[in-house]
Design a protein around this nucleic acid. Structure first.
Lengths: 176, 176
DNA sequence: TATTGTTATACTCTATAACTATA
DNA sequence: TATAGTTATAGAGTATAACAATA
């Protein structure tokens, strides 16, 4: 159990990390804001999925997810095919163009981080990743009460899995 | 030097940390959004200062700082007295009401973090703080090119110091 | 009746540019 | 001419609520 002073300092660091995120966002292509980039990244990592699953991974409301998805779909980076098993749902899938876009994003991100964190060791980066992952886990599903996927449904979704085989490597155990 | 996979994972974690920030923001009073809370926090830590110094600590443009400051000033949480040495500047100072507000914010923040991070050790929280601090340092002053305080002026500002004696302890070397 | 997803609306945060007052 | 600060405007992200289609 940490002291109050530490908690206040952590809160300050969380508030200030926004500057880092903004610096990262600044290298994104003009037609691909952060929300779109997140959609492409998660589809690339976890493979095809439904809106509700994506909203869960993004940790935002489904209405927000819907807007981000509409944006990338308009640009032809993903397909939205109807789910044969549930006509209310749509299956999201990266197109070839979307995969190209994602490769470009990865390239830019890696380049920026390699430049900024040139003096960090592999181990140090790993420690930060591990602690940030654990931080998110400690906060759990902290979206506003309404319309949060209940545990039962989350389990069902996990068991259900993605409808198409994810081509991307799934090397990490991180939630998202 | 870390691998590309790690960089991509770190980028993902930075993107996803927003959910934690939103959960923190949810406990703020209705008339005190995140920007206002940040202003109060920094004034409490570093003592009285000018707009430009606050913008530097917030790592946002001065126009943004101006809006946040106007909001807290309207509510009587800070004073904006003219700087006798430079009539263009204003000295920002927490009022008693502002200090009360800040205490309330600290209380809520600490309570939430104590709840969420109950199973974290003091050392683990310290590690996360340390790595996040270093991350911000590695990114440095990454605000958009225009109107970023040049090094010479930053040094001058540091030497200049705060106009009134900061009551708060200045025990850390962290940029903000 | 409950769930999936969409849309309309509102709020917060941010940056750019134009403007004023002072140095 | 340059700097400190303000304001107007625009863009991105998010949540809430109302709605349509389907289970």
């Amino acid at each position: 159990m940490a002291e109050q002073t530490q908690y206040e300092e952590l809160a300050r660091q969380l508030s200030a990390i926004g500057a880092v995120k903004r610096d990262m966002a600044r290298i994104l292509p003009h037609d691909c804001p952060g929300g779109s980039a997140a959609v492409l990244t998660l589809l690339g990592r976890h493979g095809d999925m439904r809106m509700s699953r994506l909203a869960e991974l993004l940790a935002v409301d489904m209405s927000v997810t819907s807007r981000h998805v509409a944006h990338v779909a308009e640009r032809g980076w993903i397909d939205r095919s109807p789910d044969p098993a549930d006509k209310r749902s749509r299956i999201l899938r990266l197109t070839d163009a979307g995969r190209d876009r994602l490769d470009e994003l990865s390239r830019r991100t890696t380049e920026l981080l390699a430049h900024r964190l040139g003096d960090w060791t592999d181990d140090e980066v790993g420690q930060l990743i591990g602690l940030m992952t654990r931080l998110r886990e400690s906060f759990g599903d902290c979206r506003p009460a309404s319309r949060v996927t209940p545990p039962a449904l989350a389990a069902e979704a996990a068991a259900h899995g993605t409808h198409a085989a994810p081509v991307s490597t799934q090397t990490t155990r991180t939630p998202a």
